[in-house]
Amino acid sequence: MTTLALPTSTAALRHALRTNRQRTLTRIYQQTFPMVRRLVRQHGGSVQDAQDVFHDALIVFYEKALADTLVLTASVSTYLVGVSRHLWQRELRRRKRLPLAELADDAQELLISEALAAEEATASVLDYVAQLGTRCRELLLAFYYFQQPLEQIAADHQYRNVRSATVQKFKCLERLRNAVRSVLVETFTT
């Protein structure tokens, strides 16, 4: 059996997430979720609560790893359990309607709130991305969000080479921009 060990350097981790996202995330999930489940259940939460905070923690982790801003002082699991613990404390305070002020001083709280705040910001573009059609949407997400290597994107999406995948990506971006723009123009002229 191949070893279950995850890459320990952030560079290797980033590479693994970019090139083999599903397998890397599955391994991390398998290693860490039982710990988060135990933690949340010990502190008055359900399995569903554990799943919710764990997914938020994974998203923070994933985006930081890809942006190269992840600082790991211990293992990936330790990091994720720490963020999950924090998120669960925050959720408990919210449920008891306690002020979040105490948590807000915390460096980790700032880090997490900042990371998850962007979510509501751009609801309007979301609909246009949904209307783009599968091929364009997948290409844009693979490039901008999942940051897969260009060679892999070209191969996965059956483009002749990196260059034609890049041109196609800009064409898709243009289509998205035009869709958003036409609506903006309509709103201003009516």
Partner: peptide, 17 residues
């Protein structure tokens, strides 16, 4: 557009999780 794509990507990641 980039912010929007970031948000859509995050939604997809949630589904994958």
């Amino acid at each position: 557009l980039y912010r929007g794509l970031q948000a859509v990507g995050r939604q997809q990641l949630r589904q994958e999780l």
